[in-house]
């Protein structure tokens, strides 16, 4: 695996973590949304990540490097799917609310603010770790270029 492939892997990490961050932000922003296009209250969403090994839908160079043998494979991360949380929604008594049922209960989104905040922090840290691998690859490439001077 060469340095550019390592950068690509870091880039895939950045992309996945950015989506996690977006989902956490979306969940927090919709913590009180009781009406959605699909009907019913908003449901918390989360990303499921998976490994995409070289050779599966990647460039020829990466597939060749993976098949070369002896060389470690590039394992990019990808967002496999975005799933909705199965946690039951919260029932809040608020008869004045336009979405209240006959008994006066409003079905609020199933969003736990603390969980979302920890997810937000985790995504931020992981994003930063990926930028560090990319900058290390870049620095090493620069060092290698200096050999010929």
């Amino acid at each position: 695996m060469d340095l550019f492939t390592a950068m690509d892997v870091g880039g895939s990490g950045l992309k996945a973590q950015r989506l996690r961050l977006n989902l956490a932000a979306q969940n927090l922003a919709n913590a009180n949304t009781t009406e959605t296009a699909e009907g019913g209250p908003y449901r918390a969403k989360r990303a499921v990540l998976s490994t995409q090994e070289s050779g599966s839908g990647q460039s020829f160079d990466q597939a060749l490097a993976g098949a070369w043998g002896g060389q470690p494979k590039a394992e990019q991360v990808q967002v496999q799917e975005v799933v909705e949380s199965q946690q039951p929604p919260e029932q809040v008594y608020d008869p004045a609310h336009p979405d209240a049922d006959e008994e006066g209960y409003v079905t609020k989104p199933n969003i736990d603010t603390v969980t979302q905040m920890t997810d937000l922090m985790g995504a931020t840290r992981a994003y930063k770790a990926n930028t560090m691998t990319i900058s290390a690859a870049r620095e090493m490439a620069m060092n290698a270029l200096r050999i010929g001077q």
Binding site: M1, D2, L3, T5, A6, M7, V9, G10, S12, G13, A16, L49, T51, P72, K73, A74, E75, Q76, V77, A126, A129, N130, M132, T133, I134, A136, A137, M140
Partner: peptide, 11 residues
């Protein structure tokens, strides 16, 4: 470095 990048991306 590539292997480390794999690990960090798949944390």
């Amino acid at each position: 470095l590539g292997v480390i990048a794999n690990n960090v991306a798949n944390a």
